[in-house]
Structure formats: structure tokens, C-alpha cells
């Protein structure tokens, strides 16, 4: 299986935005996804809102809460993904905690995922055996399970995780929750170097990436930068004004060099 996610990140200088699905509403969320695709996103992480996001900082917690208050559930997230993928060819990775997926049903999710243009799943609180079970089920449906690694991950674990990994490796830049930080930690580069010993898969760095210099810095040693809270904060700031897409656009103008927009995908149009 040639993984579309891997393909899209191979060239380096990759950009992986994260947004909470359907925040602030389905239409604006779709508009933002289209914008991200147009701005050269190589993969999009779509967050499934959950009541108890223990790995997230306040910005993503609040966006999750907003989405839940608007009645967003996995069914709506899937249909947003499907609408987006009907016109754009950017791989989508669902970013979720385990419980909403379990409740929905892993079988049912596997069956819907491909149909909705979902290429991968990243489950924050599934590691080791729990991840392995999930990966086996997803594999039958050609959906990748993306693995997270952290500065605390030992070499022994890294080797095992990398051996089973698919798509790309998500390297968490520092021990902590999602959210803005002053600079990219030295730990991140060390971690990516360690990861490279065990895999040729692309490596993306995320958590706290909120400025142009963070992105440029990450591109020096990793294949892609993940930007989450910084985008979600713009969406939050726009609540009530309907100018979320415009705000996200101006953030991206600051965050990404211009040529990133040109570096879109070879295949435009739908694969669905």
C-alpha cells in the first residue's frame, strides 16, 4: 500500500494544520478547510470534539466545548470531511480521543472513514496494545493509524512504535499539552534525530507551533510543522463575526512563506 499521507509529506517543508471540526459551525469550518487546502496544507488534522480532552490546552479545550455546545458529533465530523474531500484532494486525519470512537463503533467508523475521504486516524489516548488492536482493524479498510512520539519516549519504545507506524510520525515538541509556546524546544530536534534512526517515514513536529520562525526552524530538521492552537485561537477570536476564514488567512500569511501556496497538490479534484 502506498500511503497518500506519506507521499504528500515526502517533499519536506510540509504544513499540517489542525482544526476542531465544525467549529464555529459546519459552513465556516468547510470554508476554513478549503482555505487551508488552498494554502498548501499537505495533510489536515480534523479534531473530533470530546468533553474531556486531557491532552489539550485551553484553546483547543474551548473549541471542543463550543463544538459540543453546537451538537457536533462524529457523524457530523464525518460528513464535513466528506464534503471537503468531494472537491479537495488533501488527506484528512481524524484527531480524536478514544471514547467517542468506541461509542460510535470502531467497525462502523472503519466502514465510513474511507467513504468520507479519511486517510488516517490519530487517537491521543491509545498506545501500545490498544493502538495495535485499532491499527489492525483500520488496516483492513486502508486507513492508517498515526503514531505520536514524545521527548519522554525511550529509544526502545521509539523503535517499536516506528516499526509499526504508518503515514507519518507525529513528534510532540515538548512534554505538555497543546498550546502556544515561546520557541521550539531543543528537545524537538533531538527527538526527531532519534526517530530518524528507526524510520524513513516523514516526521512532523507539533505542539506550540504558532510563529513563522517556529515553522522555519522545524523545517530545518523535520518534514512538516503541525499548527493547531494558533489557528483555533483565530477561529475563537472570530466567534460571532463570521470572519473566521479571513482571520485564519491572515494568520497563515504571517506563518507561512508565500511559495507554500504554490506548492499545492499534483492531483487537483476529487478522488472520491
Amino acid at each position: 500500500m502506498t500511503d497518500r499521507i506519506t507521499e504528500n509529506l515526502k517533499a519536506g517543508r510540509g504544513f499540517i494544520p489542525f482544526v476542531t471540526a465544525c467549529d464555529p459551525d459546519d459552513e465556516i469550518s468547510l470554508e476554513i478547510l478549503d482555505l487551508l487546502a488552498g494554502r498548501g496544507a499537505n495533510v489536515i488534522e480534523l479534531g473530533v470534539p470530546f468533553s474531556d480532552p486531557m491532552a489539550d490546552g485551553v484553546v483547543i479545550q474551548r473549541s471542543s466545548q463550543r463544538a459540543l455546545e453546537n451538537g457536533v458529533n462524529l457523524t457530523r465530523v464525518l460528513s464535513l470531511a466528506k464534503r471537503f474531500r468531494a472537491s479537495k484532494d488533501v488527506p484528512v486525519v481524524l484527531f480524536s480521543y478514544l471514547n467517542p470512537l468506541l461509542r460510535f463503533g470502531i467497525e462502523k467508523l472503519c466502514e465510513s472513514a474511507k467513504d468520507c475521504g479519511i486517510d488516517g486516524l490519530l487517537v491521543v489516548d491509545a498506545v501500545d496494545n490498544e493502538a495495535r488492536d485499532l491499527r489492525e482493524k483500520l488496516a483492513e479498510h486502508d486507513v492508517s493509524l498515526i503514531s505520536l512520539v514524545a521527548p519522554t519516549t525511550t529509544d526502545e519504545r521509539l523503535e517499536r512504535i516506528c516499526r509499526e507506524a504508518e503515514g507519518f510520525i507525529y513528534a510532540v515538541s515538548r512534554a505538555g499539552v497543546t498550546g502556544a509556546a515561546g520557541s521550539v524546544s531543543r528537545e524537538a530536534a533531538d527527538l526527531v534525530a532519534r526517530v530518524r534512526k528507526f524510520t524513513t517515514l516523514p516526521v512532523a513536529v507539533g505542539f506550540g507551533v504558532s510563529r513563522r520562525e517556529h515553522v522555519e526552524n522545524i523545517w530545518e530538521f523535520a518534514d512538516a510543522a503541525v499548527v493547531g492552537s494558533a489557528i483555533v485561537a483565530e477561529i475563537e477570536a472570530s466567534v460571532g463575526t463570521r470572519n473566521a476564514a479571513a482571520r485564519v488567512k491572515s494568520l497563515l500569511d504571517q506563518l507561512l512563506p508565500l511559495q507554500k501556496a504554490a506548492h499545492t497538490h499534483k492531483v487537483e479534484g476529487s478522488r472520491l
Binding site: V124, D125, V127, D128, E130, L148, A150, T152, I161
Partner: peptide, 20 residues
């Protein structure tokens, strides 16, 4: 050894917490 009593228990945490 993984902290399961039957199907209950285990360790459902972000990767960062595994080593600690």
C-alpha cells in the same frame, strides 16, 4: 502485567505519560 482485570483497566494515556 498491563494492568487489566478482565477487560477493565489498562493504560489509555498520551504517549508523553507512558515513560513516567
Amino acid at each position: 502485567k498491563n494492568g487489566y482485570w478482565g477487560e477493565f483497566g489498562g493504560r489509555f494515556v498520551p504517549e508523553t505519560l507512558v515513560a513516567p
